[in-house]
């Protein structure tokens, strides 16, 4: 057998193994199709929920337009003159939330953080006996696209708050003539079975 013939047989044999490779490719395609079907099904039926958020806002009631607006906030508060604002909470999370609103009076220079709530030592909690709490359903996808709505199962408020400072608070605030009223949003953690700070806050700076 010449070298050329041996080489030809080798080439033909390699063609036969190519056929086996084709079979392997066929099986691979079948496996890929099955995996794709399972993958698509699992994506459809086990969709991961996107991250949500909670919204806290302060509003004022305009008597002329008879509407709530994020404008014309009070600028001063005295022991003989209360200030009135409205708060509103919206649940854009993906599950039911049990919210609590904590209102704290602090020095004007006090930093407010979304990481840590204001500690009890550096603040005076107003409304110690009046807890503001509410359980809210999450907003539906349609409700998430709505803007300017003030009522719904996912909305708490607008609820009126009459802000006041008493002599005790005034005596403890060292910054002259100014104070800060911070509204912190807390939510109930069912695992830890207590309220945890959401990191959502708003504040008003007022003369006193």
């Amino acid at each position: 057998m010449t070298k050329e013939k041996k080489s030809l047989i080798k080439k033909v044999n390699s063609k036969l193994t190519q056929s086996q490779v084709n079979r392997i490719i066929t099986m691979s395609i079948i496996l890929v199709v099955i995996a794709s079907v399972i993958g698509i099904s699992s994506n459809v039926f086990f969709q991961k929920k996107p991250d949500g958020f909670s919204e806290l806002s302060l509003l004022m009631y305009n008597d002329l337009t008879e509407n709530f607006e994020a404008n014309n906030y009070p600028t001063r508060i005295y022991s003989y003159e209360n200030a009135s604002v409205y708060f509103m909470v919206k649940n854009f999370e993906n599950s039911v939330k049990y919210y609590q609103l904590q209102i704290k009076v602090v020095e004007l220079t006090q930093n407010v953080s979304s990481q840590q709530p204001i500690s009890a030592t550096s603040s005076f909690t107003l409304y110690a006996n009046d807890t503001f709490e509410k359980i809210l359903s999450p907003a539906t996808n349609a409700e998430k696209r709505e803007t300017g709505f003030l009522a719904g199962d996912y909305i708490w408020g607008p609820t009126e708050l009459v802000l006041y400072v008493n002599a005790e608070v005034v005596s403890k605030i060292t910054s002259p003539n100014f104070l800060k009223i911070v509204f912190e949003l807390w939510e109930f953690n069912t695992e830890k079975e207590n309220f945890q700070y959401t990191g959502v806050f708003v504040f008003l700076e007022l003369d006193y």
């Binding site: 599950s95 049990y98 359980i135 359903s137 069912t190």
Partner: peptide, 10 residues
């Protein structure tokens, strides 16, 4: 609340 949190569709 735990039960309500686990519900996938409201």
């Amino acid at each position: 609340l735990k039960l309500l949190e686990e519900i996938p569709n409201y």
